[in-house]
């Protein structure tokens, strides 16, 4: 069984424009870059956070601190999931105490990854505020969670899946809507679809 790509939602230009807009929104909403830090959620969120860091640096001349969050140890499905997820390193080389933390992820779906990321961030210190930036919000929330910066709202059915491919980690640069026949293997960007959560 393989996933069938139904349609391309966004191409490389689309992704670039959206990230440019989100970078401006972050600066605007936080009235500059004071105390703002970026934390990318593994895996795609890290790539996106790096790009936002670079864009904000181009616009404001300030390189924001950037960290990497692995939420595996905070997942709520460890007891039920079939394949035990591999724990990767969390690397946040600065204190989040009193900071404006922007969590960055590729797709917001059930909200469970965001919940885990909130808990993981709180364990590192007490930020002044935590905001969430995502490339795609595909709906179907199971928890009361919303994003502060949304690239694109994409109405989906639960049977579908959204695949974000970024050239740093994949062969291509696009967002693709796929049919989900209950299989986790795809020919296009196999790494991404293993991330079954948000």
């Amino acid at each position: 069984m393989e996933r069938i790509a139904k349609s391309t939602i966004m191409d490389a230009n689309g992704i670039r424009r959206i990230l440019t807009r989100i970078a401006h929104e972050i600066i605007e909403k936080n009235k500059g870059t004071k105390d703002v830090v970026l934390i990318g959620i593994r895996r795609r969120g890290v790539t996106l956070a790096k790009r936002l860091q670079q864009l904000i640096c181009e616009f404001e001349g300030v390189k924001l601190p950037m960290g990497i969050l692995d939420i595996t140890l905070y997942r709520d499905d460890l007891r039920t999931i079939d394949v035990q997820p591999v724990v990767q390193e969390t690397a946040v080389p600065f204190s989040v105490q009193g900071k404006q933390v922007i969590l960055v992820d590729d797709v917001l779906f059930t909200g469970r990854t965001a919940r885990a990321a909130l808990d993981a961030t709180m364990d590192l210190g007490r930020p002044q505020r935590i905001q969430l930036a995502v490339l795609i919000d595909r709906g179907h929330r199971e928890l009361p969670i919303r994003a502060d910066y949304v690239g694109k709202n994409l109405p989906t059915s639960r049977r579908e899946s959204v695949s974000v491919c970024l050239r740093e980690a994949d062969d291509s640069e696009e967002v693709v809507l796929m049919d989900k026949p209950g299989c986790l293997i795809s020919w296009n960007c196999p790494l991404n679809v293993l991330q079954q959560d948000d």
Binding site: D70, E89, T90, D123, G125
Partner: peptide, 11 residues
């Protein structure tokens, strides 16, 4: 490796 990072945290 990630476990060591957790061990060295204040919390």
């Amino acid at each position: 490796k990630p476990m060591k990072e957790v061990l060295l945290r204040p919390l």
